[in-house]
Simulated assay, not measured.
Amino acid sequence: MRATRRYEDMTVKIDAHQHFWNPARGDYGWMPEDDPVLSQVYRPADLEPVLRKLGIDGTVLVQAAPTVDETEYMLGIADTTPFVAGVVGWVDFERATDRAELERLSLNPKFLGVRPMIQDIEDLGWMLRPDVQWGFETLVDLGLSLDALGYPRHMANFLALIRRYPELRVVVDHGMKPEIGNHSEDSFASWADGMARIAGESGAFCKLSGMITEAGADWTVDDLRPYADHILDVFGPRRVMWGSDWPVCRLRADYEDWHAAARQLTSGLGEDAQELIFGGTAAAFYRLEP
């Protein structure tokens, strides 16, 4: 099992979810060609100025392509970029031989865990298939984490998976992508119930991220508030971490605008709770080194 790195109690600001990419690499199949926002190259030098301005100490760099090559690309960035505290990568759960890849990657101290791109998998029950269970078992064995990327329709299966592996550290990405832009009482109630079950029946964490992307182009803080309030209510600050989802967030707003909105959404909480959401929770969950 991978050695546990202890995180000392200190005030730290962490962006728990961001990306770098170069579309010319050719493995971002989800990315529209010639998109004025997404198809640009994004490097550390593009993000560092805003991190410095906002006083953010570090980031978690998350995969955006279903290839081990991209994971290697991100680890290379992390090795030369002090503010990248860790990397969430990818391996092929449909290839049991990729256990060796996980074991090898886990030797890099900045490799934190993996994110299967479940939102893009047609088979709704993929995560419960017998042939992919080795992957979740290996994450437990190696002390690595799982970023749960999906939509509300995946919540029941994610809950079943998390309960199957109670020792697996899981964080729900982007609040499981609720339909903020197409809000209805029924869709909100269904999402809210599913999230409450995940929070109440498992030890999973949740990222306060991706919300503006799921909202309309003319989103307001009030549009986001019911969803943020519910996440904070059912998970609590010790299990909620803020992430920018930059540069995807640029589809709706700049980094600073989303950061300001998230600060507004959490302004009613105490200082200790805000410190957890904007740094402490991510540092503890991902076992980041100060």
Rank of each mutant, 00 (worst) to 15 (best):
W90Q: 09
A78Q: 01
S106K: 13
A45C: 07
L75R: 11
R99F: 09
W90R: 08
P66D: 14
L54I: 11
P66F: 06
A45E: 15
A78S: 04
T67C: 06
P82L: 10
D57W: 01
V60Y: 05
V91P: 02
K53Y: 04
N108S: 10
V87F: 03
E72Y: 09
D69A: 15
D69K: 15
F93E: 02
D98M: 08
T71P: 08
N108Y: 05
D92T: 12
A85P: 02
E103M: 12
V91F: 02
D46H: 08
T81F: 03
P109Q: 12
L51D: 02
V91E: 07
I77D: 00
R99G: 09
D79T: 03
E94D: 14
A64P: 00
A96I: 13
V84Y: 00
D98S: 11
M74D: 04
T71R: 10
T71Q: 11
F93M: 10
R52C: 10
P109S: 14
R99S: 13
T80H: 11
R95Q: 11
D92V: 12
R52D: 15
A65S: 11
L54Y: 10
T97G: 14
T97D: 13
E48N: 05
E48I: 05
L75E: 10
F83M: 03
L47F: 01
V87T: 03
V91H: 05
T67P: 04
P82Y: 12
E101P: 07
L105K: 02
G76T: 13
V91M: 03
L61N: 04
L61D: 02
E72A: 15
